[in-house]
């Protein structure tokens, strides 16, 4: 197989909170994405998935944040690159689509201005050419009457339309990598499906690498080839999508699956994961998921489990994993 386009290796991001306490938002995350591949990062709020995304594009605030590890995009080290260099990477080689299309577009500029801004910035073309390209992009993301739409302000478009515009802006200069941070969370279900279909099309047509960050396993199931499950800043399980859904082994992954309704109704009652993640203890006193884990034992406490490759494929960070092939919905 080809060389991976994006290689994130042992990424650490630590936030200093007021009072000197440090929170490890991302704690040794590694994954790789190839061109044309879609990799999912799934986890609940506070698991560090968005921070990982922001770190890749160097969008974390500079004050109070320390990062270490390595982020290679096509061999270029992005972690610690100068702001000047990062400005050329962002949009040109890697772009991001954000969660809330309602607030992610500038309310005082027409969408045409916001599109052409990125186009002229990266492709160095004249205004007219940029407008043509902008209309072309809107057409590509499925917005009817693109020429007229260019003159619209963001508030004149619906949420789904705005997210399409966001995607068009991200696509403006054909980046090799797109990071989508919960791109469908703020949208209606029907629109969600359309936006996912659009992203899938982009990946297929342009051979773009896509990192899909979400808490929604349905999104993962629909679009990703492989999945990384994050908990408290670490990847706890990763696998090919089919294997992960067929045979989830980490109890957190299983908990996530059990809390999602199934269309075939095979599940009965939805089972929530009790408790909520804690940023205080994290991994220093054993497995961070132990306080919420149904299969917790003494072996889980004291020392944090390592991420190991399992013989059945994928990697797993658990000392008491569920057996291979055990379905989720017949009780955990």
């Amino acid at each position: 197989m080809s060389e991976p386009l994006l290689v994130v290796d042992d990424l650490h991001v630590t936030f200093k909170i007021h009072g000197g306490r440090a929170v490890r938002a991302v704690d040794g995350v590694s994954f790789a994405v190839r061109a044309g591949e879609t990799v999912g990062i799934v986890g609940e709020s506070g698991s560090g998935k968005s921070v990982t995304a922001l770190a890749i594009l160097g969008l974390l605030p500079s004050r109070g944040v320390t990062t270490s590890g390595s982020i290679l995009l096509n061999g270029q080290q992005l972690l610690g690159a100068s702001e000047h260099d990062m400005q050329d990477v962002r949009g040109r080689r890697a772009a991001m689509v954000f969660q809330d299309p309602m607030t992610s577009l500038n309310p005082v500029l027409t969408i045409g201005r916001q599109l052409t801004e990125t186009i002229t910035r990266h492709l160095g073309v004249k205004r007219d050419a940029a407008r043509d390209r902008a209309a072309e992009l809107l057409d590509r993301v499925g917005i009817p009457e693109p020429r007229q739409r260019l003159k619209n302000y963001p508030h004149q478009l619906s949420g789904g339309m705005r997210q399409r515009v966001m995607i068009a802006i991200a696509l403006a200069s054909d980046p090799a990598l797109i990071i989508a941070d919960e791109p469908t969370t703020a949208l209606d279900v029907t629109i969600q499906a359309q936006v996912l279909e659009l992203l899938r099309e982009v990946v297929r047509e342009s051979n773009t690498a896509l990192v899909m960050i979400t808490h929604d396993l349905g999104v993962i199931a629909g679009i990703c080839e492989s999945v990384n499950v994050m908990y408290s800043g670490r990847i706890v399980e990763s696998n090919e999508r089919h294997h992960l859904f067929a045979s989830p082994r980490h109890h957190y992954t299983r908990g996530l699956l059990a809390s999602v309704p199934r269309l075939d109704g095979a599940q009965g009652r939805l089972v929530p994961i009790p408790g909520s993640p804690s940023d205080v203890i994290a991994w220093s006193e054993g497995c961070a998921f132990a306080p919420r884990c149904p299969a917790v034992s003494d072996a889980c406490r004291g020392q944090a489990p390592e991420l190991v490759s399992s013989p059945e494929g994928g990697t797993l960070r658990c000392v008491q994993p569920a057996p291979v092939g055990m379905p989720v919905w017949s009780g955990r």
Binding site: M96, T103, L109
Partner: peptide, 26 residues
């Protein structure tokens, strides 16, 4: 702090135009 500034940054808008065209008008 608003999202649109982060999203403009994420597609490589330069700092000067970020301030003058995005932040100041708002």
């Amino acid at each position: 702090q608003k999202d649109y500034v982060t999203s403009a940054t994420s597609v490589g808008v330069r700092r000067r135009s970020l301030v003058m065209r995005h932040v100041v008008p708002n």
